[in-house]
C-alpha cells in the first residue's frame, strides 16, 4: 500500500512528449559521439593510443583535403551570397514573393543524390569536363535555397518605414540600400552563411560524383576512412570537422549579436 502511494502515477504532461526525442538523441547522437571519441584513442587492436592523431596531423594529403574543403566551402558560400542576395531582395519587394520562394525550395524535395547524379548526366551530355568547377556548381545548386530562404525572411520583415525614414533624411535609392537595408539584413546573411558553409565543408558524395572522384573533400575522406576500417583516423577527422563546425557557429553567433540587436530566427 505504502509503496504504491509513494509512486507517482503516470500522467500525460507536456514533458512526456519530449521523451521520444530525448531517447532518439541519446541513441543516435550522444552515443555515436561518445563512440567516436573513444575510437579516436584506440588502435586497431583496441589498445589505448595517440597514434591516430599522429597519422592525421602528419599526413600532408589529409591536411590538403581539409584545406580544399574549407576553400570549396568559402567559394560556395560567397557565390551563394552573390546570387542569393539579389534574388531574395527582388522577391521581398514582390507581392507574390512568398510563392516564388517556394519554387526555389520545391526542388529540394528531390533527394540530393538523385539531383547530383542528374547534374552529372547533364554535364557529361554537354561534354563539360568534371572537376573543381563542376563540384562548386553542384554545391551552389544544392545549397542556394538555404541562402535565399533566411535572406528573404529577413528582408521582407524589415519595416518599410526605415527605408522611408532614410529617404526622408536625404538618402537616394543606393544610399537607402547600403545604409539601411543591408545593415538591417545582416542577421539574414549570417543565417544563410551558417546554413551554407557548415554543410558544404562536411558534405560528401557531391564532390566525388561531380568530379569523377578527382576531387576529394573532407566528408569523402571521413567516409573512406570508415569504409577502409580505419575507425581511429575516421574518428579523429570527425572530431576535427566538429571543431570546425563549432568554431564557425561560434563566430557567426558573435557576429550576429554585434551586428544586430534585433535577433531573428534562422528561418
Amino acid at each position: 500500500m505504502k509503496a504504491k502511494s509513494a509512486r507517482k502515477p503516470f500522467r500525460l504532461t507536456k514533458k512526456a512528449f519530449g521523451v521520444p526525442y530525448i531517447l532518439f538523441l541519446l541513441l543516435f547522437v550522444v552515443i555515436p559521439l561518445v563512440l567516436i571519441l573513444v575510437n579516436a584513442f584506440l588502435d586497431s587492436d583496441n589498445n589505448l593510443t595517440l597514434a591516430n592523431f599522429k597519422i592525421f596531423f602528419t599526413s600532408s594529403s589529409s591536411l590538403t583535403v581539409l584545406g580544399n574543403s574549407l576553400l570549396v566551402g568559402v567559394i560556395t558560400t560567397l557565390i551563394c551570397i552573390i546570387i542569393g542576395y539579389p534574388v531574395a531582395y527582388i522577391l521581398s519587394k514582390m507581392s507574390s514573393g512568398k510563392i516564388l520562394v517556394l519554387l526555389y525550395v520545391i526542388p529540394m524535395g528531390v533527394n540530393f543524390l538523385i539531383r547530383t547524379l542528374a547534374t552529372k548526366a547533364i554535364f557529361i551530355a554537354m561534354d563539360i569536363e568534371l572537376g573543381m568547377g563542376t563540384v562548386i556548381f553542384g554545391m551552389v545548386y544544392n545549397y542556394l535555397p538555404f541562402m535565399i530562404m533566411p535572406l528573404h525572411t529577413t528582408l521582407s520583415s524589415i519595416d518599410k518605414s526605415y527605408m522611408e525614414a532614410a529617404q526622408d533624411l536625404g538618402a537616394d535609392k543606393a544610399t537607402v540600400f547600403f545604409k539601411t537595408t543591408l545593415p538591417l539584413s545582416v542577421s539574414g546573411v549570417i543565417s544563410g552563411v551558417t546554413m551554407v558553409f557548415i554543410p558544404t565543408i562536411s558534405t560528401y558524395a557531391i564532390s566525388q560524383l561531380l568530379s569523377n572522384g578527382k576531387i576529394f573533400l573532407f566528408g569523402d575522406s571521413i567516409q573512406l576512412s570508415f569504409e577502409q576500417g580505419m575507425y581511429g583516423v575516421g574518428s579523429i577527422m570527425s572530431i576535427v570537422m566538429l571543431v570546425f563546425v563549432l568554431i564557425s557557429n561560434f563566430i557567426m553567433n558573435r557576429f550576429n549579436r554585434q551586428g544586430n540587436s534585433v535577433r531573428r530566427s534562422l528561418w
Binding site: 529617404q167 533624411l169 538618402a171 545604409k179 539601411t180 538591417l184 551586428g259 544586430n260
Partner: peptide, 27 residues
C-alpha cells in the same frame, strides 16, 4: 522624397535599430 526640403517624424518613430542615438540623428 530625398530631394524635398521637408522632414518627417514617423508614427512609430522608425529609428534605425542598427545605429545608436548619435548616429541616428547624424544620418
Amino acid at each position: 522624397p530625398h530631394l524635398r526640403s521637408v522632414n518627417t517624424v514617423f508614427q512609430k518613430y522608425a529609428l534605425f535599430p542598427h545605429l545608436n542615438v548619435f548616429n541616428n540623428i547624424a544620418f
